[in-house]
Amino acid sequence: MSPPDIAPHGIPQGPGAEVLGEPGSALDLGPAEGENAVYLARRGVRVTGVDFSGAQVARARRFWSDVPGLEFVHAEVCAFLAADSRQWDAIYSTWGAVWFTDPDVLFPLVAQRLAPGGVFAFSHREPIVGQYGAQEMGGRWLEGRSAELVVHRWQFTAPQWADLLKRHGFLDVQAEVVPGQEPGELGTLIVRGTRPSGDGHL
């Protein structure tokens, strides 16, 4: 199997990797096959990708074994963030783990692993009107599973996400919906915040 093509952007629609600033290190939450992580690593960023799917991690490692400064870890993101003591200049998720993790559990862990002044950014599909909070979904979401797996997907409006980030101590919060490319198509919601750069803690 050949590696996937690398897109010139870190987010499917709208702004790309520039939302992260110029990090020296980055953590990708839910990198799947690793295209976004590779895009950054090839530009000199040290990147760690953490994914819950062992099949995706194995594929990413096989595809990008020749890319320096890049590692893929098989783990649940909250367990990884709680156990790994490193800090990163940027933590991001492109239609990945942030969408499928309780933000009241995840955001404090992200804050602990961001370097002071670091950027936290994520994207997911624009929510359907009225379908906010934890939405139950069924499906065979992880390769290698024969049975249907029920998961939850957290969906909020841009202002709701902004309020969540602010409540967890993030600053310079921005949240917007980039419209879909076709009439009637749902857009992409993009959220960004930073950790305070002073001596205080979140």
Rank of each mutant, 00 (worst) to 15 (best):
P8F: 06
H9Q: 14
H9F: 08
H9M: 09
G10Y: 00
I11E: 01
I11C: 01
I11N: 05
P12Y: 07
P12D: 11
P12C: 03
P12R: 07
Q13W: 10
G14N: 08
G14W: 09
G14K: 06
P15W: 08
P15K: 14
P15A: 15
G16D: 11
G16K: 13
G16M: 14
G16W: 13
G16T: 14
G16F: 11
A17L: 12
A17R: 09
E18P: 10
E18N: 14
E18G: 12
E18M: 13
V19I: 15
V19L: 15
L20F: 05
L20S: 03
L20D: 01
L20K: 00
G21P: 05
G21I: 06
G21C: 04
G21F: 14
G21A: 07
P23N: 15
P23S: 06
P23E: 14
G24F: 00
G24Q: 12
G24C: 05
G24E: 10
S25W: 07
S25M: 09
S25A: 12
S25N: 11
S25C: 07
A26Q: 03
L27M: 04
L27N: 08
L27D: 02
L27I: 05
D28I: 02
D28N: 12
D28E: 15
D28F: 01
D28K: 01
L29K: 08
L29T: 03
L29H: 01
L29D: 01
G30N: 08
G30K: 04
G30H: 05
G30C: 11
P31L: 07
P31C: 11
P31V: 03
P31I: 05
P31A: 09
P31M: 02
P31T: 09
A32Y: 12
A32C: 06
E33I: 00
E33K: 00
E33F: 09
E33T: 08
G34F: 03
G34Q: 10
G34V: 03
G34R: 02
E35V: 13
E35A: 13
E35H: 02
E35G: 03
E35P: 00
N36F: 03
A37H: 02
A37P: 07
A37Y: 06
A37S: 15
A37G: 15
A37K: 04
A37V: 02
A37D: 05
V38Q: 03
V38S: 10
Y39R: 15
Y39K: 06
Y39Q: 09
L40G: 12
L40M: 14
A41N: 02
A41P: 01
A41M: 02
A41R: 01
A41E: 01
R42L: 10
R42Q: 11
R42I: 05
R42G: 05
R42N: 04
R43E: 07
R43I: 06
R43S: 05
R43K: 13
R43Y: 07
R43Q: 15
R43M: 09
G44T: 08
G44A: 08
V45K: 00
